[in-house]
């Protein structure tokens, strides 16, 4: 096993109720040259359109867009699932959309994104769960941990809706536990430091 094996390749984020604000908090501290692509499922009304990616793009240094099917993910970009479609990542790191039935009443579903991301990136994946009023993403978080990836969950007391972070924490309690539970305003900064340390540390070898 080479040291390169530890290098992270992507970040996946799941958010629901309260997520529009939370995503801004997490993404705004990240610089335009953040070395990993970020792929996001935020539950939205099916008719929500492309308002959220535009809002985030205006506020963030990273470029933010709604995911197009078959496009390859790149560092410096944030991709959001279009409302009413599941978003998946292929093993060649291109994006796919699907209209399969909702999972845990959700489409897009955080679990669907996370599960496909594990197949695509294995342990080189960072998964983050933010605010939300359901348990979507809990199974995905558990699977990311099982695959050896790194998991951050928003501290439930800092979440507008605490059900989703609580479910994620509970899903891995007992055996492996999430790697970090952080207040909302610390997640972006921590992610940046963590990725820089791991990413640059290996590059400098």
């Amino acid at each position: 096993m080479s040291q390169r094996e530890n290098q992270f390749q992507a970040v996946v984020i799941g958010a629901s109720a309260g997520g529009i604000h939370a995503l801004q908090q997490v993404l705004m501290p990240l610089p335009a040259d953040f070395p990993l692509p970020i792929i996001v499922v935020q539950h939205l009304h099916p008719d929500a359109g492309a308002y959220l990616p535009q809002l985030l793009d205006n506020k963030c240094q990273l470029k933010v867009k709604q995911a197009d099917e078959k496009e390859f993910v790149q560092a410096g970009w944030v991709y959001l699932a279009p409302p009413a479609y599941h978003l998946l990542i292929e093993e060649d790191h291109s994006l796919s959309l699907s209209l399969e039935a909702p999972v845990s009443y959700s489409r897009p579903s955080v679990d669907v994104l996370f599960e496909s991301a594990i197949f695509a990136y294995g342990k080189r994946l960072i998964g983050i769960i933010l605010t939300g009023a359901n348990s979507d993403g809990a199974l995905g978080i558990k699977k990311i941990k099982q695959a050896g990836g790194y998991v951050i969950v928003q501290a439930p007391e800092t979440a507008e809706a605490d059900a989703m972070p609580k479910a994620a924490i509970a899903a891995v309690a007992g055996n492996q536990a999430v790697d970090k539970i952080l207040a909302l305003d610390q997640i972006g900064q921590y992610l940046l430091q963590w990725v820089n340390r791991n990413f640059l540390g290996i590059r400098m070898k």
Binding site: E91, S96, S98, E115, F119, A120
Partner: peptide, 9 residues
Amino acid sequence: YAKASIKRR
């Protein structure tokens, strides 16, 4: 077929 989705199914 796109693999991620077919694998899921």
